[in-house]
Amino acid sequence: MTRTRTRWWLYVVLVLGLVAMVMPFVWMILGSFKTTAEIRQYPTNFWPIDPTLDNYAQLFGRLDFTAFFTNSIIVAFFVTAGNIVFSSMVGYALAKLEFRGKKLLFAVVLSTLMVPGVVTFVPLFVLTANLGLVNSYPGLILPFLITPLGVFLMRQFMLSLPDDIIEAARIDGAGEWRIFLRVIMPLCGPAVATLTILTFLGSWNNFLWPLVVATTEDKYTLPVALALYSVGQNAAQYGLMMAGAVVVVVPVLLIFVVLQRYFVQGIALTGIK
């Protein structure tokens, strides 16, 4: 009897919590369809009375959000590709090969797992400036082509693959590169999927470095454009800003809902018990 009642209360509390978690997203989407006049009213209506697409029209017309969206995609694509290729390669060496310096390499990867971007961005900018890469795609992409977390994730996954298949391939005379490409990588699907999602997301949401290195509008990524517009002269344009947030957030939310098991897997794969 008491037990049933406890559970019932738990559902109520969890649902209230869920409403609090989801409400900002609902508010964002509804706000993006409201006219400025409607927003100025107080108290504000929950549902847009006179829904309009004007905010989106401005976003992709007057402001160049098509270009920002494209920039975000380009940067995220190369960052993700680089992480998959390079992390897999180091991951294989760390998981399946015995070599001099292995312990040192892994220790370095582990110790830099949590180094924040705010510590490195100033010298990184000086370096980028001297390479002539400020305000360029390589400038946006190069520093993120590798992440220690990606290496760690691939190593952890590859450790779980049996050594027998590698030994068998070696006896058949296959070289390490062949083994890596033909034997190991085809088995790494789940790890690569998780890494893809995590890296793409990290790049898509990345803010500090693009803010520093993209100096003109044509190289802005979505978060940079959104942040700079939100504190500039468009700041009071509530509906416009909400529409901008929708463009950044909703694609990612959709991907998350569809692929949510890979997100959870990512946390499991990085070795957290």
Binding site: G17, L18, M21, V22, P24, F25, W27, M28, G31, L201, W204, N205, F207, L222, P223, L226, A227, S230, M241, M242, G244, A245, V248, V249, V252, L253, I255, F256, V257, Q260, F263
Partner: peptide, 17 residues
């Protein structure tokens, strides 16, 4: 999914919201 959703979103975008 509901409780995890904010994690995947851009801080800039939700800060505006």
């Amino acid at each position: 999914v509901g409780y995890y959703a904010p994690v995947v979103t851009s801080i800039v975008a939700i800060a505006i919201v």
